[in-house]
Simulated assay, not measured.
Amino acid sequence: MTDTRTPSPSPRRRRRGRPWLIALLILALLPLGGVLIHRFLPVPVTILMAQQALAGKGLDYRWTPLEDISPHLVVSAIAAEDARFCSHGGFDLEAIEKALKHNENGRRIRGGSTISQQTAKNVFLWPGRDWVRKGLEAGYTVLIETGWGKRRILEVYLNVAEMGPGVYGAEAAARHWFGTSAADLSPRQAARLAAILPSPRRYDAGTPGPYVRRRASRIQAAARTVRNEGLAACVI
């Protein structure tokens, strides 16, 4: 009788396919490895920092632990950028819905990104608004919310966010704009730094114009609400 069974692949043929599996595993583990490393170690440099430095915009970046950053800046950043930071899981669906409605009306585009999303983008990804980057941003946001926790997320955010032309993080910004340390920022100075976060290369926190002064006043009032209502309890 003729044997019609299909012969099993040889060990050599099975081994030939394994490099693809290994490559896929490495690609899957790279994001996890990056998130794990930055859970404990300071971020050395971001893609944006490198791009701006290579373009001749300078690089002033000084890593500072969260305990050495004024609580006034902590509550001001939350008030300005993400009032529900302590209560959401990385995505503020209400803010996203409001941003979509705002943009549908043809007005100036408004983002709905949380501090967690901004941190994921700043640390791991490139600047831009393409859908690939947004998809990766969502994945990294889930990873850092799961693996870092709120306090570490805010610590990294306040260290890598651009706060002036070529100026990154609370310590560099405090010295650049006010000649003081991040630990000694006053409520007004902290509000001014938070006020320029959306456009740090356009606005001046040291000698602000009318727009930044108005925005800083609103942020300072909102920061008091954040503190009084315990909206920053997860980090201070």
Rank of each mutant, 00 (worst) to 15 (best):
T2M: 13
N105F: 00
R133H: 10
R39V: 01
A191D: 05
I153W: 05
V142I: 14
A55Y: 10
R133Y: 09
P11K: 00
A53V: 07
P19G: 04
G230H: 03
L21S: 09
D204P: 10
R224H: 14
A194K: 09
R215V: 05
F124A: 00
V132T: 02
E155P: 02
E137P: 09
S87T: 15
P9E: 00
R5C: 00
A232Y: 08
R129T: 09
R15N: 08
L66C: 01
R39L: 01
C86Y: 02
G230Y: 09
A50F: 11
I196H: 11
R224E: 15
S116E: 08
R13S: 09
I109R: 12
V235E: 10
R12N: 00
R214A: 14
L193I: 11
A28N: 07
L197T: 06
A50Q: 13
K98N: 05
L154H: 08
R201Y: 12
L100S: 05
G112Q: 11
V35T: 08
L29T: 12
V74H: 03
I26L: 14
K134S: 01
H102T: 10
A221C: 11
I196L: 03
P210K: 14
Y168S: 00
L73H: 04
Y203W: 13
G164T: 13
D82A: 01
E94S: 11
N103K: 03
I153G: 01
I153E: 02
A161R: 11
D130N: 15
I219W: 12
L54D: 05
S10G: 12
E137K: 00
R202C: 06
A23Y: 03
R108A: 05
H38L: 15
I69L: 00
T6C: 03
V167Y: 09
L158V: 03
V74F: 06
G166N: 08
P7A: 13
W20E: 08
R227L: 13
S8V: 11
A183R: 14
A194D: 02
V167H: 04
R214C: 07
E162V: 03
V75R: 15
E155H: 00
R107Y: 10
R18G: 08
A28R: 00
V74D: 07
H102C: 06
S181V: 02
A95N: 04
S186E: 00
E104W: 14
L21G: 09
I69M: 09
A79Y: 07
T6N: 05
R15H: 07
I69H: 10
Q117Y: 07
R108G: 04
E67R: 03
S199G: 05
L136A: 06
G179H: 04
L48I: 11
P65Q: 05
W148K: 05
T141Y: 06
S70C: 10
A191V: 12
I26V: 15
Y61Q: 07
P127R: 01
I115T: 10
A191I: 01
D184A: 15
V74A: 09
T207Y: 02
L231V: 01
D60P: 11
I69Y: 04
P11Y: 10
